[in-house]
């Protein structure tokens, strides 16, 4: 059996090239293993072989993010690696960010398991834990001996397609990924247990800590609405008859852009709602209840708004993950900006 090919990523310091003075070094590849690679190879065992090590200066990586990534990917490609390990970076911030960035890029580019290791306070943990398995390490290189076996154990599980255990058991930073399992008690029994603990003032542990939603500073207001180009976006699940883009009625994975050129109002002969979260009978009868095309057209004619964009963007809000909604928003926003839109009305059901 041929060995599993591993590529290892190190910064200038761990590759024993130099300290801060060498932090600008550009990416280069060495065949075989270097420095911490010895411990990694040992932990991985005889079925694995570190075929190459890529080295890059932390400052170079940080100030040339795009270029560093593409150059490193090019360097690695000929080796067709099956596993990628970066670092570990311990508490080195720039190194942590580099490890996270390149491991994420490798995973995406080659579709292979990529992992790294960091100390809990390394900013790279917060940045990349959702994308990667990041093994929890000590805050300095003194923890190398302990970190490498953990990295190797998890890497092997990923390679072999074994089930990954809880963060505490497999030693990685919790990624905030919600994974199903079967508890030995049903939910209602757990609720009674938890309630009695809470009532008695004992310690209890929620099964889902309240999530965090970030904030965006408000955009500056429109000064003269009669010159503004207004666009409509909706999460009410309004689509043309037949739902051409097959948008899901719940937990949407896509959005649609639908033309309303020449229309004075939304007609029930042209549009329907496929939203699974409410009684759609009213909107099926009058889609203007979700997409206020009729009144916006009037305002456009009266000159209250400069122009109404001749389309609306649409998706289903119910059960749609914030992750997907962010992707939709980013793409819709880009397109709106490119089309000269200056103000947006977003309607939700």
């Amino acid at each position: 059996m041929s060995k599993i090919k591993v590529v290892h990523y190190l910064n200038q310091f761990f590759a024993q090239i130099g300290g801060e003075e060498m932090a600008d070094m550009e990416p280069e590849l060495r065949e075989g293993l270097i420095g911490p690679g010895i411990a990694l190879q040992q932990a991985l065992g005889a079925d694995y072989e570190i075929v190459a090590t890529v080295i890059c200066g932390d400052n170079y990586f940080g100030s040339n993010l795009e270029e560093a990534q593409s150059r490193i990917l090019e360097l690695i490609k000929p080796y067709s690696p099956q596993l990628f390990v970066a670092g570990p970076a311990f508490n080195a911030g720039r190194y942590g960010v580099a490890c996270g960035t390149i491991a994420t890029a490798v995973e995406k580019e080659f579709g292979i398991p990529a992992l790294t290791g960091m100390y809990v306070e390394n900013p790279g943990v917060e940045m990349f834990k959702k994308d990667l398995y990041i093994i929890e390490t000590a805050n300095s290189a003194a923890g190398m001996r302990k970190a490498m076996p953990k990295i190797a154990t998890l890497a092997k599980k990923l390679i072999n397609g074994n089930e990954i255990d809880l963060p505490a058991e497999d030693g990685y930073h919790e990624r905030g990924i919600r994974v199903n399992y079967f508890h030995d008690k049903r939910g209602s029994t757990r609720a009674v247990d938890m309630l009695l603990q809470k009532v008695k003032g004992e310690e209890y542990q929620t099964e889902y800590p309240m999530p965090f939603f970030d904030r965006v500073p408000p955009a500056t207001p429109i000064i003269d609405m009669s010159k503004a180009k207004v666009a409509i976006v909706s999460s009410g699940g309004i689509v043309p008859l037949g739902n051409p883009d097959r948008i899901e009625s719940s937990s949407a994975t896509k959005f649609g852009k639908y033309d309303v050129t020449g229309m004075d109002r939304m007609s029930k002969d042209d549009f329907i709602s496929i939203h699974g979260g409410y009684d759609t009978a009213y909107i099926l009868e009058d889609p203007n209840l979700a997409i206020p095309l009729d009144v916006l057209r009037e305002m456009e004619k009266e000159g209250q708004i400069g122009e109404l964009a001749n389309y609306f963007y649409s998706t289903t809000g119910t059960g749609t993950s914030v992750g997907n909604a962010e992707v939709f928003g980013t793409e819709i926003g880009k397109q709106l900006l490119a089309d000269g839109v200056t103000a947006v009305i977003l309607t939700s059901t």
Partner: peptide, 22 residues
């Protein structure tokens, strides 16, 4: 939380919701 399990699991939250069964 989405197919990848990475998004927020609930549409709304309050600080008092500190004991929750999933």
């Amino acid at each position: 939380p989405g197919r990848d399990g990475k998004s927020q699991s609930l549409a709304d939250t309050v600080d008092e919701a500190d004991a929750l069964v999933s």
